[in-house]
Design a protein around this nucleic acid. Structure first.
Lengths: 192, 192
DNA sequence: GTCTATATCAGGATAGAC
DNA sequence: GTCTATCCTGATATAGAC
């Protein structure tokens, strides 16, 4: 059983997925975590503190579910690994939905909150580099610049498709299909 | 000189670009438009009404600046028209910035405000169809499904690149470059 | 159509007991 | 560390005059 602080953060992820970063009300969070609002302020000082801690929590969690593969699952080749990594973000499970929603919210919030930008840019860069590496595994002869650009397009597209899905403009299966095709296209492009 | 209603909508676009959809306070909007809050409620009933009307206003405006070409400019071919249409959304002019910001915000807000979804989905569909038509002009022999999917990918990518630009994760020129390359890739794909 | 003034209420934050 | 109770600001929305 996690400690109270962690339970509050887990609850915060759920509430953010439901109401958004800017729709998060401390009282609702208190109910969700089954604690008093006072306790939340005891642990996090103010609303912004909650947000920051939650975003960190969410990043750690995404790191976990992206990296760890099912030990029983068959070994996948480089291309499969790439597809898995990207398509994993387009899945309707509570954890992924929470993470995608929160990430999208963080992205959207950063347009108006400069304090968030640096962290976000760094996280984006790391993500792009990870994808570029995976692309490089499939096409070892491709140039670094070409790999980086393909990774930027794929991750940006994924973000775009993700919000469309979450905002009800695009069915999930369709989003996955478009993403899969884009991966194919970028790989074909890198092949020359 | 525009009527009051229009002036309020123009002001709303500015305020949304500055504070976001969820940062929009009716009182601030009233100041920006130099009218009373009561007048805003007279014209738009409630906050959501303002948002909806602003979305429509922004769409109409984007329609205008997307369609209208400089009369003195040289006639462009189908491919040029396509590129212009898409790259126009990645420009650092006040009007475009306002539109892109507001559009991104509305998209992000729709994740949590179901009332916005229908309008947004319809607007998205129209945009996708417009781009699909332009793609069709370049490749008249391409199938409708392929055109639609290419258009979906390009517009979703544009949204993704646009927020990255506005949130400070991607320099504008780089975003434009990535977009241009993506257009090339999709056209090549349709040709093959 | 447009204003001033205000009702209303939600939600962030704190005091103080245990 | 955790709760109950409450204060207080700020934001939506309306009444009623012109």
């Amino acid at each position: 059983m996690a400690d109270r602080r962690t339970m509050i953060l887990e609850a915060a992820a759920r509430v953010i997925a439901r109401r958004g970063v800017r729709g998060l009300r401390v009282e609702e969070l208190a109910e969700e975590a089954d604690v008093s609002t006072a306790l939340i302020y005891y642990h996090f000082k103010h609303r912004t503190g909650i947000l920051r801690a939650t975003l960190e929590f969410i990043n750690d969690r995404a790191e976990r579910y992206t990296r760890q593969r099912d030990p029983g699952a068959p070994a996948v080749d480089a291309r499969g690994e790439l597809e898995q990594t990207l398509l994993l973000e387009l899945q309707d499970t509570p954890e992924v939905r929470e993470n995608s929603t929160a990430w999208g919210e963080l992205r959207a919030s950063a347009v108006f909150e400069p304090e968030l930008r640096e962290d976000l840019a760094r996280a984006t860069l790391m993500w792009v580099q990870e994808v570029a590496e995976l692309l490089g595994k499939v096409h070892p002869m491709a140039g670094a610049a070409a790999l980086a650009q393909a990774a930027e397009r794929l991750t940006a597209l994924l973000e775009g498709l993700s919000v469309r899905w979450l905002s009800g403009s695009l069915p999930l299966v369709h989003a996955r299909h478009l993403m899969a095709e884009a991966i194919d296209a970028e790989l074909a492009r890198l092949a020359g």
